[in-house]
Nucleic acid binder design. Structure first.
Lengths: 225, 225
DNA sequence: GACGGTCTGTGATCAGCGTAACGCACGGTC
DNA sequence: GACCGTGCGTTACGCTGATCACAGACCGTC
């Protein structure tokens, strides 16, 4: 498989060639089509995944079937590493949002590398610290902001990570249905739809199939606070 | 200062005496009375803290002054370590909930220890992973559960961490005002008060000054789901 | 072109919970 | 004892957003 992409990941940047090839020797490549699940909440897990291309949603399901998305992960990002340090079953499920290619690494192999290379643990610590920061922020938003505010915030976040400049604004090909967007911001599909409709009507965004174009970044930012 | 308590902390358990004494040489002892702040959101921070006794609340303040508590930390726990890996200003404020004694360690000193001892980074990774798991859970609860459910959950969590058996149940001396409890579960003081009153009326709990006694653990658990 | 799935758009209803506005109990200070 | 600050208990009211219930749009498949 193509290890070049992995080589360029910050997590492995500090490794010497020997350690890197030892690590990548036992890599599994996984391809997923939209909607297919990689693992479920409660599964045992001994792998972590690096996203080569595509997007993965991490979510939790309540006993009554309602779902809540914890994060959307994109190319170059890593997930499923928590069980490495805290050996418990998967705390979320992972499902492909679009055609997705992953590289799976056994925890065991990474653990060996960690003991030898403090730089790798530093990278992992940083990644976890950032995730924790983000999650705390989301928690606060859920308390402080109303649904339109959270939708605005989510769009801005997605734009930041997946946006590309277009002729009349920023194209955000998030690949999410409105239902998924609703699960991400912790609201009902209907309310999210109404919020989006309002933004469109104000000329802040334009809707496309599983994508939005942000036309007025400033206004949207104001609404998100 | 008394380094025995620190010695017993899992984070430092793996250190040899030399490394440990190097680390503790530059320790600062901090005493706080209820309500006094250790640091604020946005402050630069180059220390992490170990709680010797007492409790600390970590919170965020919205622009309009409303507050939201991210966590209550108790004896033996560590906080303020995130800036170690992800050098940004403090993402929360830290305030004493009761008389509290802390040991402050400079990030710089801990960083030195980390590079030498992979066990310490493993401990830190585990602590962060657990925190992230907990926070994700709280996030889901905020979406899925109503206020009484969240209050029940918070009480159970506090009981788990600070509860002591009493004659007629579990005494949870959480030291929080109802206002603070409300900020912790993301609700208004009034609604939390109503929820508590209902639990009392059903005979599930008994209220005391900044404490509760859990009388019917089973029912409370059921309500929390 | 007819059918069935999935997704989007929108209105009507209803309840959970925030807000506002009280009164009361307690403890500390002069 | 008089005073004040802080925390608790409880009410009435209104609004945000979930739920329900559709209708249309856009697929792919037969």
């Amino acid at each position: 498989m193509d290890t070049d992409v992995l080589r360029r990941a910050p997590l492995f940047a500090s490794l010497d060639d020997e350690a890197f090839s030892a690590l990548t020797e036992e890599i599994t490549e996984v391809d997923l089509s939209r909607g297919s699940a990689l693992f479920y909440e409660g599964d045992p897990g001994d792998q972590l995944y690096f996203i080569i291309s595509g997007k993965i949603k991490l979510g939790r399901t309540a006993s009554d079937g309602r779902e809540n998305l914890v994060a959307i992960m994109g190319p170059g990002e890593i997930f499923g590493e928590m069980a490495l340090f805290d050996p418990s079953p998967r705390s979320t499920s992972a499902t492909a949002v679009s055609e997705t290619r992953l590289a799976g690494l056994k925890h065991e192999n990474l653990r060996k590398v960690i003991t030898r290379s403090p730089e790798v643990s530093a990278q992992l610590l940083q990644a976890l610290a950032r995730r924790l920061r983000r999650t705390n922020e989301n928690l606060a938003d859920l308390v402080f902001s109303d649904v339109p505010g959270r939708v605005a915030k989510a769009l801005l976040d997605l734009a930041d990570r997946f946006g590309r400049p277009a002729t009349d604004g920023i194209l955000v090909a998030h690949e999410l249905t409105q239902e998924e967007l609703a699960q991400l911001v912790g609201a009902s599909r209907e309310t999210v739809n109404k919020a989006l409709a309002e933004f469109v009507q104000r000329g802040w965004i334009r809707l496309e199939a599983r994508a939005v174009v942000i036309l007025d970044l400033q206004r949207l930012k104001q609404r998100s606070r």
